[in-house]
């Protein structure tokens, strides 16, 4: 524990700026994965334990598309679209068969998919780890803001993630389809009784969830290592985020993701050996006082 260092950091503008942006970037990528997770749970009451796999596949597809086209933008797009399609197939072929089944049965099926996909990645791409490398456009020196160091690439990532989060909120809040999704989350029978095609709706939700995870994987590919099984750690953190934010609440996921990112960035200064433990403690404390997360609906 190093509380002096932590105090020193929060009172220095350069440290504050650097660590805050560092927390934001970790948080925003996490938010993109967690947003899909929480959306799927909110509408379908499905806990998608295979969500980390979406992220992994998105990164690999983006990597291959980048190698093929040389364009980072196309790579990310391919990752997002690929996972949107994968999400629909996953929902139609597997998950649709266990709607209403016990959460543990869903867990079992998702676990099987995780196992299968990890091995498929090993077969298709090999066991070596890959790194996409920074796209030439972003191979520029970092900016200095109030003494803090901020790389332009990360500013771009934060803005893109914010735009996607904002777009998602607008989609849910203003459009007709958004209203239907929210209604379905509230009362699926009612939506079905109104003659709305819930099959299509459920596939759509998985497509959006898959796309978000795939985009996050693609966006992160230049700076993170690609290995089979890389979805594992992001899955755990996404769950922490969705649970703290309240399962089903996208706004909650955003706040929780940022909080988690900040816990990590400042935790590494104050408690370098117990950062992981801090996240679990935060989760337990919040759940003790708010048994369904910060913005979750009471379960009855």
């Amino acid at each position: 524990m190093d509380l002096d260092a932590l105090l020193g950091c929060v009172t220095s503008s350069s440290c504050l700026v650097t660590q805050t942006t560092s927390g934001l970037i970790v948080g925003m990528l996490l938010f993109m994965v967690a947003a899909g997770l929480t959306l799927i749970f909110g509408v379908l009451k499905i806990v998608n334990f295979a969500h980390g796999t979406f992220y992994m596949l998105g990164a690999y597809i983006a990597y291959s598309a980048f190698m093929f086209t040389g364009s980072y933008f196309l790579g990310v797009l391919a990752g997002g679209l690929g996972m949107a399609i994968f999400g629909v197939i996953f929902e139609r072929v597997l998950i649709s068969r266990v709607y209403g089944a016990n959460v543990l049965m869903q867990l079992l099926i998702c676990y099987a998919v995780v196992l299968i996909c990890d091995d498929l990645v090993k077969i298709v791409w090999g066991p070596d780890f890959y790194a996409m490398g920074m796209p030439p456009a972003f191979q520029v020196p970092p900016l200095f803001i109030a003494g803090g160091v901020v790389p332009p690439f990360y500013i771009m990532l934060i803005l893109v993630a914010l735009a996607i989060g904002g777009g998602l909120s607008l989609l849910l809040g203003l459009t007709k389809i958004g209203k239907i999704i929210r209604a379905a989350a509230h009362n699926p029978n009612m939506v079905s009784a109104l003659g709305i095609n819930t099959t299509l709706l459920y596939s759509l939700v998985f497509a959006v969830g898959g796309m978000l995870a795939g985009l996050a994987g693609g966006l992160a590919a230049p700076v993170r290592s690609l290995t089979p099984g890389m979805g594992f750690s992001i899955l755990i953190e996404s769950f922490i985020v969705t649970v703290i934010g309240g399962m089903g609440s996208i706004g909650g996921a955003l706040i929780a993701a940022v909080v988690l990112g900040l816990i990590r960035s400042f935790g590494t200064i104050g408690f370098p050996l117990f950062t992981e433990g801090l996240m679990y403690i935060a989760m337990i404390i919040i759940l003790v006082f708010k048994p369904s997360g910060l913005f979750g609906k009471e379960i009855v």
Partner: peptide, 8 residues
């Protein structure tokens, strides 16, 4: 997955 906070 992310070393940003460590790097900063």
């Amino acid at each position: 997955p992310d070393f940003t906070e460590v790097i900063t």
